[in-house]
Amino acid sequence: MASAFERHGLDHLSASSINLFVAQPAMWAMQKLMGRKSMVGPAAHRGTAIEAGVEMGLFDPAAPVEACQEAAIARFNQLTALSADPAVQKERANIAPAVAIALAELRQYGIPEAAEGNRQHRIEVQLPGVPVPFIGWLDFWYPAHGIIVDLKTQARLSSKISDPHARQGAIYHAAHGNAEIRFAYVTPQKMGVYRLEDPRRHLDRVVSIAQSIERFLSLSDDGAALTRSLSPDLDSFYWNDPGARAAADEIWGFAPEGDAACLNAAQ
């Protein structure tokens, strides 16, 4: 018999998926069960751009920092070309210093190992009690040191690994049991590289969340009905994307005409 995941067309999970389910279950359902995607904002693009610049500098240690910074900014410009978000300018200014700081720290690790045909390493791991595998991508793997480094960009430096990141690290650790997982948090001013402690404890939480998702999915085979049984927190930054808010209006009927339609349907 197919699992609840498979009945809803979900053939895998990921760290970002379970973390979204915890933080914003309504958005998770909107994306996974009703196929409605959200656009990310300039902050997310800043992270992608910085990663691109850092990746360039780590795989090519001779590349000047300036070239890596330019590559990062070019990537950011590409991602935000059509964005009217006023935060774009501010986020662009954060990119070059963060690339420099990250490279100054992470180049000391040496050159990461490249995967075949890709720089990031795909991981897939089956966890006991979860019927579908977890899939993810490692940022930087240093097998000579036994260290996996995941790069996170921030405006202000975290003093510790957040729980969502710890869950991500726990999944990596489950896939590479001998590796030490480190999270490299970089801001335009400084950097903190933290080791994930007690990955087993966080992995227990990963499994628990996955099983919560399975129980939720088991309530009905109707993805739309399951989605409408939840309610979005539109005050959250997760819903900043106008497209996401429009989808929320459509699904949950926040617009006046939507409310009337729902009331009519209920009567």
Partner: peptide
């Protein structure tokens, strides 16, 4: 300011020595 975490701040890990 960032609210103090329940757990102690994490220690910065120096790069591994080749």
């Amino acid at each position: 300011p960032v609210a103090p975490a329940a757990a102690a701040p994490a220690a910065h890990m120096p790069p591994p020595v080749a």
